[in-house]
């Protein structure tokens, strides 16, 4: 799987271009790649046109404002909502109230928090079967 690097400043313009060329947005995947020393997230945009696929890759640190491609692709609404809810990336104009309820304790469950030891956020799958996933 080959990915094309791009900057978040160019993202919206590129999305419009791809829409003109007839690509459809399949999915947006956010992954937290943070380590203890630095905070880094990658966002992948998967596009398809008949049998071809293309993947755009954007890196962000997950705290600065992040552009939304909703104006180019209407079906990005749910996908970007999830980006905000699951990883805490502040996507412009997206509320992020899709999957999690306000009263849920966990915010951004897929985010690795710096400063919080990983152990406390880990769902204890290996050691103790009794602990329900939070």
């Amino acid at each position: 799987m080959r990915t094309e690097e791009t900057k978040k400043e160019n993202l919206v313009a590129q999305a419009y271009e791809m829409k003109k060329e007839g690509w459809r947005l399949v999915c947006i995947t956010g992954t937290d790649l943070s380590t203890d020393s630095e905070q880094k997230m990658e966002v992948l945009y998967h596009f398809a046109r008949e049998n071809e696929v293309r993947h755009l890759r954007v890196e962000t640190d997950g705290t600065e404002n992040y552009p939304s491609i909703l104006s180019a692709y209407a079906n990005a609404l749910f996908l970007e909502n999830e980006l905000k809810e699951m990883l805490g990336i502040p996507v412009d104009g997206i509320k992020g109230e899709l999957l999690l309820r306000l009263e849920d304790e966990v915010k951004a469950p897929l985010k690795r928090l710096r400063g919080v030891s990983y152990e406390t956020r880990e769902i204890k799958v290996e050691k103790n079967a009794e602990v329900a996933p939070q």
């Binding site: 749910f78 966990v106 469950p109 769902i123």
Partner: peptide
Amino acid sequence: LQVGYCHRGLERIFQT
């Protein structure tokens, strides 16, 4: 539209 009543956090559990 509002969805999300069946959210079980499976994508987190799949990190195994």
